[in-house]
Design a protein around this nucleic acid. Structure first.
Lengths: 227, 227
DNA sequence: GTCTATATGGCGATAGAC
DNA sequence: GTCTATCGCCATATAGAC
């Protein structure tokens, strides 16, 4: 264990040495700007937030923001990428930990509920803002990696026979659409109870929608008549 | 000398006709502005659309727009109200036509799919734009009348025993969340096939999620008979 | 009711010292 | 890398003739 006094001295040394100092300070500042942008974008929206607002709230200069990000849109893109990556990491972790489609679906829903509760700002920014309005070249959020991962999970479930063989988009939206919608209700503040109270029954409902085994319905196997 | 009574009548007629003409022209203009606003708001977004854009596209003057709506926000609110009312009318119609929770749920999903296909702009504006960013005093869209109507339908289903007795928010989102999500995929242009091709299996999946009796019959495949 | 011309403010972005 | 001061534009909104 390093004595506090030495640790402090070391930190001070770091701060004093010009090269490291500038880099460190730069990184800290960059993070503070991103954090502030998330706060303001998710509560007021991208267009209601000016660079000056971010400057004031983050207590940095306009110049620094432009130095690090280039322009407002690029700042939003940097934030968006970071949040999607963080979310994707969470989902990857679920997919590695859980085995079987049901356990993974449950895990994904649980992850979303936890994320929406612990960090509503991130969830709000990823789910609710219309990124294409300010990131015109970005593909829709439903084709981002986290959402592709959910879809993948369902495809594997169909392949293994755990999920009944309906069209993939139907199965994927039936599995997670309800949970996503409930998360939105939570973010809009219209739910009486905390999200966690609904977790188990949402997981059950989602699984009933797509599971193959319980009633083993043969409806979808009936040859459809073209109109 | 013209009798006073006739003169009065004639003047009155003139006044009436000019007034009516102006009123008519005004109404036509008002509708053209609303139509244009829907077009631009739903494709470019509220904040990327200027009053000048609307002016140009609708071929009216700035002054007329402000005369009819007061300001940009009020214009958006007028449009929003009109679209919600139109949607609510469609849902009311479904609720009156169909009896039983399953038929009504199917009808609601079918209505949403049809609306998203026939008039994607309306669906995009209602579902996707974040109204609270430009209509700060508006309640969230999930507590608007169309969405309350969906919730009501589920509550009745629980009361009648057709829907299994889980928490209402869970049942409502499980029933319609998948369909709403699929509509969004459609609006984002990431679906291979037209929405209608997914209708029957989406209805089935939605009903499986909330039905109380496990073996849910595929009602849409059964030929309906007049009673 | 409709129009054109104009006012006003705030925004994103830049310049250039340190 | 960070900062302050400032630019130029374009948005919403208004004034006032017709």
């Amino acid at each position: 264990m390093i004595p506090l006094i030495l640790e402090r001295t070391f930190v001070r040394f770091l701060l004093m040495s010009t090269v490291v100092n500038k880099k460190l300070r730069g990184e800290v500042l960059r993070q503070r700007v991103l954090e502030t942008a998330l706060e303001l974008f998710s509560t007021c929206g991208y267009f209601n937030t000016s660079i000056h607002d971010i400057r004031r709230e983050a207590d940095v200069s306009i110049g620094s923001i432009y130095h690090h990000f280039g322009n407002k849109e690029a700042l939003a893109k940097a934030l968006y990428d970071e949040l999607l990556e963080r979310m994707d990491a969470g989902l990857r972790e679920v997919m590695e930990r859980e085995r079987g489609c049901r356990a993974r679906c449950d895990g994904i829903i649980a992850f979303m509920f936890r994320a929406a509760t612990d960090d509503p700002r991130t969830m709000r920014f990823v789910l609710e803002s219309r990124h294409r309005e300010f990131l015109p070249d970005e593909p829709p959020v439903c084709s981002s990696r986290p959402f592709m991962r959910m879809r993948e999970c369902i495809e594997q479930g169909i392949a293994s026979g755990e999920v009944c063989p309906i069209e993939v988009p139907v199965a994927a939206t039936a599995a997670f659409g309800g949970a996503i919608r409930l998360v939105q209700l939570h973010l809009d503040g219209v739910l009486e109870k905390p999200l966690s109270r609904y977790l188990a029954s949402m997981q059950d409902a989602a699984w009933r929608a797509i599971a193959s085994d319980p009633p083993a319905p043969a409806k979808h196997l009936i040859k459809e008549t073209e109109e």
